[in-house]
């Protein structure tokens, strides 16, 4: 067991013929993910990746023909909202959207539409998911993590790699790593993933990487104090960020007095979460307990 993706994941890649889509589809295939289909309107009938993966015109056809149950989206921001809606209507149960720079109003419409359906979105603006040794959906480098019992959830990309790598250096592995993304409006939040890790028998410990902006970490802290029995470790990026500035991620902004790292750290510590001063401290903190 693991969460969200495993060896049963059958993946369709939306935007498989683009540079990024193709490169990362190859990486996913080499990692062992069952990449069963790709889509690109107008290129249906072609085959890519040395003839291993068929391309279809639409996600619906791809799902009907190959039985794909998960979609990953590599299309540019201006087409991403449509791509998510297309996936939602195709019958897959998990959509992972990596695209950065999607207009907020597009995301509000997508999210409100998806809420009426039985489908989960992870992202957008995220690195995707990795269940070490089984499956990867997205762009997290497979070689920086080993299988283990630590569940990792994060709003960031490379900062997550940093944590996975620091764990691996100490011979500690991950059950699943979930990048929920750096946008202000996303499909899956910390609480969703914390609940899944709590129920996952393969996860014993949880690492949660947050950052400035919004109040999701504070809500997660409240949830942890009420519902999470497994130990949680955390790091919150952005203590040195000035207010009113977007720190790269669309969602990483301190607005008024809301969204500061200090408030988040305080809320998490009050909920019994061990919060690291910097990401490389996390493995030692886990080993020390």
């Amino acid at each position: 067991m693991s969460i969200l993706i495993d060896s049963n994941t059958r993946l369709v890649v939306q935007g498989i013929t683009g540079r990024e889509g193709l490169f990362h589809s190859r990486q996913m295939l080499e990692y062992g993910t069952h990449v069963v289909a790709g889509t690109r309107p107008g290129k249906g009938g072609e085959w890519v990746l040395d003839g291993k993966v068929p391309v279809f015109d639409s996600v619906q056809i791809a799902v009907d023909v190959t039985g794909a149950n998960t979609s990953v989206i590599f299309v540019p921001a201006r087409f991403a909202a449509d791509a998510m809606l297309e996936a939602a209507d195709s019958g897959v149960n998990l959509i992972v959207c990596l695209t950065e720079g999607i207009p907020v109003q597009d995301m509000m419409r997508v999210r409100n539409y998806l809420d009426q359906r039985e489908v989960r979105l992870v992202g957008p603006n995220c690195p995707g998911l990795l269940t070490p040794g089984e499956s990867k959906v997205g762009i997290i480098p497979g070689n920086i993590a080993i299988p283990g019992n630590i569940g990792v959830v994060s709003r960031s990309g490379t900062l997550t790699y940093e944590v996975l790598y620091a764990l691996k250096e100490k011979n500690m592995g991950a059950s699943t790593c979930v990048g929920i993304g750096g946008d202000p409006i996303n499909g899956t939040n910390f609480i969703d993933v914390l609940a899944m890790f709590e129920d996952d028998p393969k996860t014993d410990t949880i690492v949660m990487i947050g950052e400035i902006g919004g109040t999701d970490e504070e809500k997660a802290a409240e949830y942890i104090s009420k519902h999470i029995t497994k130990p949680v470790y955390s790091f919150i990026a952005g203590a040195t960020a000035p207010p009113g500035k977007r720190m790269g991620h669309a969602g990483a902004i301190v607005e008024g007095s809301e969204g500061t790292a200090q408030e988040k750290v305080k809320a998490l510590r009050a909920a019994g979460v061990a919060v690291a001063n910097h990401p490389e401290e996390i493995p030692d903190m886990i080993l020390g307990d």
């Binding site: 994060s154 709003r155 960031s156 990309g157 490379t158 900062l159 997550t160 790699y161 940093e162 750096g182 990487i209 950052e211 400035i212 790091f235 990026a237 952005g238 203590a239 040195t240 960020a241 500035k245 720190m247 790269g248 991620h249 990483a252 790292a261 001063n277 910097h278 990401p279």
Partner: peptide, 27 residues
């Protein structure tokens, strides 16, 4: 100079943690 917004923030934070001050955020 860092790749990735989260890591760029974390890099600024760790500079501060060890007694320095970051001159910029750059992703």
């Amino acid at each position: 100079m860092v790749n990735g917004a989260g890591l760029a923030m974390a890099t600024m934070d760790i500079i501060k943690f060890f007694g320095g001050e970051p001159a910029n955020f750059l992703d």
